[in-house]
């Protein structure tokens, strides 16, 4: 076995964990913002998929990876907007509408792909990486961690930023209150509906960029249903992280490692059927839920529509 754990194996594992984990990180972070504000966002899978499609479409036509991310964010927010209107403003069931938006995004992106790209299946060129001087020269982890596309560093930065907003700003406090006791927030003069809508839009934006990353960097191509449950894994990450952005980061890297274990093993010369590998992240999620499920914590007003002056 000693030949298995070589330097290329570990480099492939760390690299894969980061590439596969980043969309999960962005989705989990986005979901956490929604959940903090008291919205269970089941539509996040659809937001990621719309982001993947939007990101691919824009990057393919403009040739710009950054405009692609913007397209991804817009795609995600295009799915988040109906969620904000229907669930936050009109008070429809967050689960029913969330499922509907996910199904709709799946169907719509698959249809659009069928009519646009199904004949050609175009690919995007490889994305340029940004090597951080000095750090990227560290053996094994250097090239895997510090020679990545710039969006990776931005995503890590977003974790710090979210943690700061949650802990040290009025906005963070208001988000927390919107999930814990919306009446109190309303009494304090903050518009609960508006705040929750903004939270859902932020989720759409982050999940959309996550999806765009999957299409632009991870795969280099858009395939129907390509998110394959990543958004739902993001929900679990957000639940287990108990409102702390860094919890999402560690969880995303763990699941990313699960997803990339197969590639790494192939580098090491061990081959596992891809179908078995596809099961790994879900096994990991269920194992986490079984072992730590009790510790998951969600805001008391999660999924409850807030009606002003209502009881």
């Amino acid at each position: 076995m000693s030949t298995l754990f070589t330097e290329p194996f570990f480099t492939a594992l760390v690299l894969g964990a980061l590439t596969a984990g980043l969309p999960l990180l962005l989705a989990g972070l986005g979901e956490q913002i929604s959940e903090k504000a008291g919205v269970l966002n089941i539509g996040i899978e659809g937001m990621m998929l719309a982001g993947a499609y939007g990101g691919f479409l824009v990057a393919y036509h403009t040739g710009s990876i950054w405009l692609g991310y913007l397209g991804g964010a817009l795609g995600g927010m295009a799915v988040a907007t109906p969620m904000a209107v229907l669930c936050i403003r009109l008070g429809l069931s967050q689960i029913v509408i969330g499922m509907a938006l996910t199904l709709g995004a799946e169907g719509t992106t698959a249809l659009l792909h069928h009519f646009q790209f199904a004949q050609s299946y175009p690919r995007l060129p490889a994305v340029a990486t940004l090597a951080i001087p000095g750090l990227s020269a560290i053996p094994v982890i250097g090239p895997a961690l510090f020679d990545r596309p710039p969006i990776v560093y931005l995503a890590i930065l977003a974790v710090f930023l979210t943690a700061y907003v949650f802990r040290s700003t009025h906005l963070g406090l208001a988000l927390q209150a919107a999930g814990d006791k919306p009446e109190a927030l309303d009494a304090a003069g903050v518009d609960v509906v508006r705040l929750r809508s903004l939270a859902v839009l932020a989720t759409g934006c982050l999940a959309g960029v996550g999806g765009a990353f999957m299409a632009e960097v991870g795969a280099g191509i858009f395939v129907p249903f390509m998110t394959n449950g990543a958004g739902f894994i993001g929900i679990v990450l957000a639940m287990q992280a108990r409102g702390r952005p860094f919890g999402v980061l560690w969880g995303a890297l763990l699941f990313g490692a699960c997803l990339s274990a197969a590639t790494a093993l192939q580098v090491a010369g061990v081959s596992i059927p891809t179908d078995v590998v596809q099961m790994l992240p879900f096994v990991a999620v269920l194992a986490v839920l079984v072992l730590l499920g009790r510790k998951a914590s969600l805001p008391p007003a999660l999924g409850v529509h807030y009606v002003r002056g209502g009881r």
């Binding site: 109906p82 229907l86 009109l90 008070g91 429809l92 069931s93 029913v96 509408i97 499922m99 509907a100 938006l101 199904l103 709709g104 995004a105 799946e106 169907g107 719509t108 698959a110 249809l111 069928h114 129907p224």
Partner: peptide
């Protein structure tokens, strides 16, 4: 040549419409 995914879209719109009708 309209792939089966179309039924997914119909079903999704149906759910949203249902919610709006309830509202």
């Amino acid at each position: 040549g309209v792939p089966n995914f179309f039924t997914l879209v119909v079903v999704a719109i149906l759910l949203v419409m249902l919610g709006i009708a309830e509202y």
